[in-house]
Computed example of a mutant assay.
Amino acid sequence: MMEKQTYLEKLDTKFKHPYIIFKRIFDIIISIIALIPAIMIIIIFAIIVVVDSKGGPFYAQERVGLMGKKFKVFKLRSMRIDAEVNGAQWAEEEDPRITNIGKFMRKMRIDELPQLFNVLVGQMSLIGPRPERPNFTQQFSEEVEGFEQRLLIKPGLSGYAQVNGGYDITPFEKLKLDLYYMEHFSLKLDLKIFVKTVAVVFTGDGAR
C-alpha cells in the first residue's frame, strides 16, 4: 500500500485534452481490425514457442497504467521459464535467457501482439508512454523528479520515446520524450509515431 501512495500522492492533477475521447474510439477500431490477422499469427507462434522451449506460450506481467492503476500485460513468451528466478531485470543485448524463436519474435515485435487485447479493453492505448513494472516505476519516481507524470495518460503499445529513443535511453531521457508527447498530444503526432513504429517493426531496430 505504501508503494502505491509513494508515487501516486504526487499526481495532484489530471491530464485533460479533447482528443482523448477520439483517441479511445480510434484505439477500439484499429485494435479490432488488427486483431483479425494478429490472432492467427499469435496462434501460429504460440505453437512454435511450445515446440521450441519448455513452458507455456504466454505469460502475464504486472505493469502500472493510467493514474497508477496496475494491470496485466500479456505477451508471447520469448524467454526461458526460469528467466527471472532471481527477480525482475532488464533484457540485455544478446541476452542468453531469450529462446531461439524469442529472438525473432522480439525483433519483429510479434511477442507484443497479445497486448492488442489490453488496448481493446481500455487498459492501454495504441500510442502512449510504455508502462513500467511496479518496482521500476517506484525506483524511477524516486530517482527522477516528475517521472510519475507519465501516469497521467494511458500507456501505449508504442510511444514517442520508443520510436525516438529506443531501448537504452535513461529514465530521465524517457521522461523528457514522454512529456514532449503529452505537450503535443494530437492525432497528427500519433499518426507519425504509428508510421515510425511500422518502420521499426520491419527493420527490427532497437530490439532485444
Rank of each mutant, 00 (worst) to 15 (best):
V50R: 02
D52M: 09
F58H: 02
E62W: 12
V49K: 02
P57R: 07
I47P: 01
K70H: 13
V73Q: 01
M40R: 12
G56E: 06
I32D: 12
Y59F: 15
V51H: 09
E62T: 12
I43K: 06
A34G: 12
F45A: 02
A46M: 03
K69G: 03
I43D: 05
A60T: 15
Y59C: 11
I32P: 10
V49T: 05
I48K: 04
I41N: 06
V73A: 08
D52F: 07
A46T: 00
G56M: 01
I48N: 01
K70T: 14
F74I: 14
S31C: 08
P37G: 13
I42F: 03
A38Q: 05
V49F: 07
P37Q: 10
Y59Q: 06
K69E: 01
K72Y: 11
G56P: 07
F71E: 05
V64D: 01
G68D: 07
I48G: 03
I42K: 02
A46V: 00
I33Q: 10
V50D: 03
V49C: 01
I44Y: 10
I42T: 04
K72T: 12
M40H: 13
G56D: 07
V73I: 13
G65Y: 06
I36T: 11
K69M: 01
K70W: 11
A34P: 08
F71A: 02
S53N: 08
P37L: 09
F45W: 06
L35D: 02
K54T: 02
M40Y: 12
M40L: 15
G55P: 05
K72W: 08
A34I: 09
M40G: 14
V50S: 04
L35W: 05
K72H: 11
K72V: 09
E62R: 14
V64R: 03
F58N: 04
K54W: 09
K54P: 04
I33N: 08
A34D: 11
I44L: 10
V64E: 08
V73W: 08
R63K: 14
A46L: 07
A60H: 14
I43L: 08
I32M: 13
I42S: 00
P57I: 00
I39A: 10
A38I: 09
R63E: 15
V64L: 08
E62D: 10
